[in-house]
Amino acid sequence: MATARKAISPEQTNQPFAYRQYSPEQLRDVLYKMYLIRRFEEGAEDSYMRGLIHGTMHLSIGQEASAVGICTPLNEDDQITSTHRGHGHCIAKGADVKRMFAEFFGKTTGYCKGRGGSMHIADVAKGNLGANGIVAGGIPIAVGAALSAKRMKTGKVVVSFFGDGANNEGAFHEALNMASIWKLPVIFVCENNGYGMSTSTERSTAVKNIADRAAAYSMPGVIVDGNNFSEVAEASHIAAERARAGEGPTLIESKTYRYRGHSKSDRNRYRTKEEIEDWMSNRDPIMLFETELKEFGIIDDKGIEAVREAVKQEIAAGIEFAKVSPAPELGDLGRYVYTEVA
């Protein structure tokens, strides 16, 4: 998507970034992806409640604009590392929800052939090097991928997604420092949803904004409204251009909110119903984007209805595909531990 740009006419320059940068068709695709993420997670949650998916999962409902906003300016061969709350990143980078559902159902047709599940969802062909069960685990890996990009001169940019909790892990600090001293093409994206499990950033983090920490590593620190697609996309676009120009990393703090609990065991005792209700009613990223699209005449109610219906059908087909897919053979337990040498 990054390659197709519209010419900017003078009367358009007051519009937000996304409306200058992307065609109406591209913007409708963005809306489709945001719905696809939300309905995918609702579908996964429903399947979990019905006992079709076991284990646990971490839902990013409410954070869709952040995932899609960061990934929209990226090229298909750019890479990401993701987190335990990584379904949105995976879809935003181009994954097929059929194979994601199949993975959650533990089937061989899943992206990880049933070995990874929600917490290790990946799509290497589309540049997603994987979600991660270890907080901050993917950050140095992203720096390593960016080192490869620089050494092999591939022109790729690598995005490392992580949450606010990760900013207090040593790996975060070590990785940012190395990316900066070696001027690597990496974008650090902190999706700050206010809570690391139950602990608020106010209680866990000495700085007011996580982006403030960029100063310690001599890189730009950018704060965006993570529920505003255009703002997120603009920051990602600028950071990607900087990275590709060899100017090094950027830290983007995308301030957002998760509607659901940390995981399936969360009793929601650390935040109020009013707080959750406020975000859902007044700052929902999909609602905000729809309103903007209508304002700019890019879509009407009928068009929105068509997007919702198409997403609904893709989700239903994905769940059906997962249900009928084959389970792994028990005899294959030892596969993929080591590379099979022919």
């Binding site: 950050i139 140095p140 720096v143 390593g144 991928a145 960016a146 050494r151 790996a171 420092n177």
Partner: peptide, 28 residues
């Protein structure tokens, strides 16, 4: 120095960079 790279004293981060480089085509 590109192929004999000094790292900061960052064993966790450095090991992670090596993992990331290995998985994306290098042989650290």
């Amino acid at each position: 120095t590109d192929r004999v790279m000094d790292t900061p004293i960052s064993e966790l981060g450095g090991a992670g960079v090596a993992v990331g480089a290995a998985v994306t085509g290098m042989r650290p």
